[in-house]
C-alpha cells in the first residue's frame, strides 16, 4: 500500500496492529461466492441453511480467512512477505441483510485484531509472529489464528 513501510526494528513484542473493520452482508457473500467459486447454498439460501444445523445462512470461512490475510498483508506493506498463516473457524458468523441494493441494514461489525508475540532473526530473515483473530459484534473471537511475516530490516538498507 502507498504508505510508510514498517520495518522490523519498528516493532516490539506486544505491538498491536491497527484494527481492520469489516461488515459481512448478503451482497458480499454472493460476490465472494462468485469470486472464490464456493457456491454452497449454505451461504445464500436460508431454507437450505436451516437443514445444516447452523440456524441460518453463515459467512464463508474462507471469506473470514481472506479478511484476516488482508489485515496482515496490508499492514506489513509491499516490502513484507507473509510466510505462514493459519486460522480456525471456531464460531459461526451471520451476515447482515440488505436495506438497499448495496447497503446493509444496521447490525454487527467485525474487527480483525492482532498482536506481535515473537520477534526474531532466522536464516537471515527478520521475522515476527503474531496472534490474530476476527471478533464479532459481541467481542467474541470467532476466528482465531496466527501469522508469521518477514519484515524489511533497516540494517540491510532495505
Amino acid at each position: 500500500m502507498s504508505k510508510e513501510q514498517i520495518h522490523w526494528e519498528d516493532i516490539e513484542v506486544g505491538y498491536e496492529l491497527p484494527v481492520l473493520e469489516k461488515i459481512a452482508h448478503s451482497l458480499m457473500l454472493v460476490k465472494w461466492a462468485g469470486a472464490s467459486g464456493d457456491f454452497n447454498p449454505h451461504h445464500y439460501e436460508t431454507e437450505f441453511a436451516m437443514t445444516q444445523g447452523t440456524g441460518g445462512v453463515i459467512v464463508h470461512g474462507l471469506l473470514k480467512h481472506a479478511w484476516l490475510i488482508q489485515f496482515v498483508t496490508n499492514w506489513m506493506g509491499d516490502e513484507g512477505f507473509m510466510k505462514k498463516f493459519s486460522c480456525q473457524y471456531r464460531g459461526l458468523d451471520f451476515p447482515r441483510k440488505m436495506k438497499t441494493m448495496n447497503e446493509p441494514v444496521d447490525g454487527e461489525t467485525w474487527k480483525c485484531k492482532g498482536k506481535v508475540v515473537k520477534k526474531y532473526v532466522e536464516e537471515g530473515e527478520h521475522l515476527v509472529d503474531m496472534e490474530i483473530g476476527l471478533e464479532n459484534g459481541k467481542g467474541q473471537v470467532t476466528t482465531p489464528g496466527t501469522a508469521t511475516v518477514v519484515l524489511p530490516s533497516k540494517k540491510k538498507g532495505k
Partner: peptide
C-alpha cells in the same frame, strides 16, 4: 469481493514500480 483495495492487486503502474514488478495475487 474481499473488500481489499491494495493497488498491488489491480493497478499495473503501481505494481510495476513495486518490488514485485507486476500484479500479484493476494495470499489465499
Amino acid at each position: 469481493a474481499v473488500g481489499n483495495d491494495n493497488p498491488l492487486y489491480y493497478d499495473e503502474e503501481y505494481a510495476k514500480k513495486s518490488r514485485y514488478g507486476g500484479i500479484i495475487a493476494p495470499p489465499g
